[in-house]
Write a protein that binds this DNA or RNA. Structure first.
Lengths: 146, 146
DNA sequence: ATACAGTCTACAGCGACTGTAGAGGCAAGC
DNA sequence: GCTTGCCTCTACAGTCGCTGTAGACTGTAT
């Protein structure tokens, strides 16, 4: 099979070119062969590896976990307990985040339904944001983006 | 009322000192008075404003929206429709994210329950990450952190 | 007087990329 | 051959919302 350039790989795995180069720079993708003029050349194994990374990212796994998973893939005879542990941690993290977002949804819902129009001065939404008594999360946890 | 230093404000509003200075640097907090020796001095209005920012952040509003909300607060006679729009957008964003995360939860659940131990080579979790047919989100959306 | 906590500025770093500038490469049509 | 137009290259800055660090100065309590 003949090698493909980065653009083809990008389409084959549905990952942007710049992202592929980024993955290479952080060691997720390994250094590819180059053509005489210096262009990166990839084979079908690279498509699989990149698709794996993409799917793992879609599942929310952080890069460090993906690095570990790829490492484990190259030792197929090792115990899969580590793999399972990583996946279960991830499931736990997703569930925790689901809980936080559900709480946000409730509060925002309450806010927007209480708005009856009018001026900002008497806006219930503004009042809700100002009112700090409700959502009293005592822990100083970093606020995450949506 | 006598002014307070940044440390007191930090405790009063439950926002870290460095974060307060950051909010100042990006124009969310305005430039405070200074003592002779150059220390920032705040009043009770600043506590309210900072608490407002904090609560809005906890609700996941992006900084730009918060800037707009604060701007609107200084014009109390303007229409609250803009405020409501921002809150509804936010609610929409939260719900969308909830949907994404629920999908992730289902897939991760399936993965970890299908794992029966053994070697990495035959690991169902690994196979699931490799198998790309299931979660086919066609859109190139940026993958968000948990 | 001394100890220690608080505050100052300025800048680098996080994660996971994205975007840009400016240069060079490659295949197809004329 | 020559041009057109896309593809690829490197290197670096920017994104978001902060956090952490270094090194100097200030304020308060004993």
């Amino acid at each position: 099979m003949k090698p493909m350039t980065i653009g083809r790989l990008s389409k084959a795995a549905n990952v942007k070119i710049t992202t592929i180069r980024y993955y290479e720079s952080v060691g997720l993708m390994g250094t590819p062969d180059r053509s005489e003029s210096g262009q990166r050349l990839y084979g079908s194994l690279d498509v699989e590896r990149l698709s794996f990374i993409r799917h793992a990212r879609e599942l929310g796994f952080p890069m460090d976990d993906i690095r570990t998973l790829i490492e484990l893939q190259t030792h197929p005879s090792s115990d899969c307990a580590v793999v399972n542990k990583i996946a279960q941690n991830q499931l736990g993290a997703v569930r925790k985040r689901l809980g936080q977002l559900a709480a946000l949804e409730r509060e925002l819902e309450r806010m927007v339904t209480s708005c009856e129009g009018g001026k900002v001065a008497s806006c219930q939404v503004m009042a809700s944001i100002n009112d700090h008594t409700e959502c009293s999360s005592k822990d100083h946890e970093r606020i995450k983006p949506l």
